[in-house]
Structures are given as C-alpha cells and as structure tokens.
C-alpha cells in the first residue's frame, strides 16, 4: 500500500489520497492521468490491468486501487 501511496503522491502532490474517495467522480484524476497511472501500477506491481477494470469504483480511492491490485495479483 505504501508503494501505491508513493506513486499517487508523486502523481498529484496536493491531493489527500489517504482520505479522498472521489478521485474519478470528483474529477481529480482525468482520463489521461488514469492511462499514466495504469502504466505505472502495471510496472511497479508486475500485473496487467485489463480495460474491464477501468471503472470509477476501482480508481475512486487509494484503497480501491489497492484492492484491485491485490485481486489482480492473485488472479495472475
């Protein structure tokens, strides 16, 4: 989880990723930033994020992203 928080903080330094739960719905992350974030997460955690996972529920908070990462790691 710490690694993910580091990625996110580097991405958007001013955002409170620990508590924010509307990163997508609140338009804090746009679609291009999602593309970049997906590439970074795939590299760091050695997973493949399929398109079907690109839904607001998986990216609205750091916790949701972490849950997705853990699930995909288990499925790999």
């Amino acid at each position: 989880m710490e690694e993910l928080m580091d990625i996110l903080q580097e991405f958007e330094p001013g955002v409170d990723f620990e508590h924010c739960t509307d990163l997508i719905d609140g338009k804090i992350l746009n679609s291009l930033e999602i593309l970049s974030l997906v590439a970074e997460i795939e590299d760091v955690f050695d997973i493949t994020i399929p398109t079907v996972e690109i839904v607001p529920d998986n990216f609205n908070s750091a916790q949701a992203m972490w849950n997705m990462i853990c699930r995909l790691q288990e499925e790999e």
């Binding site: 679609s31 970074e40 590299d43 398109t51 690109i54």
Partner: peptide, 27 residues
C-alpha cells in the same frame, strides 16, 4: 477511449515513452 488507449500496442507505447517523455506526454 479506454478500450483503444488500453489496447496492447497503446499500452506498450505509453510504457516505452514514459521515461523519455515523462508522465504527462507519454499517455
């Protein structure tokens, strides 16, 4: 948008250019 930009070759393009172009221009 997402299915096209997340397709295999597009993902590769983003990953391969991330170091040279940075996290803004590569995606």
């Amino acid at each position: 948008f997402y299915p096209v930009s997340m397709a295999g070759p597009m993902k590769k393009l983003t990953k391969n250019t991330r170091k040279s172009l940075g996290s803004y221009y590569s995606p």
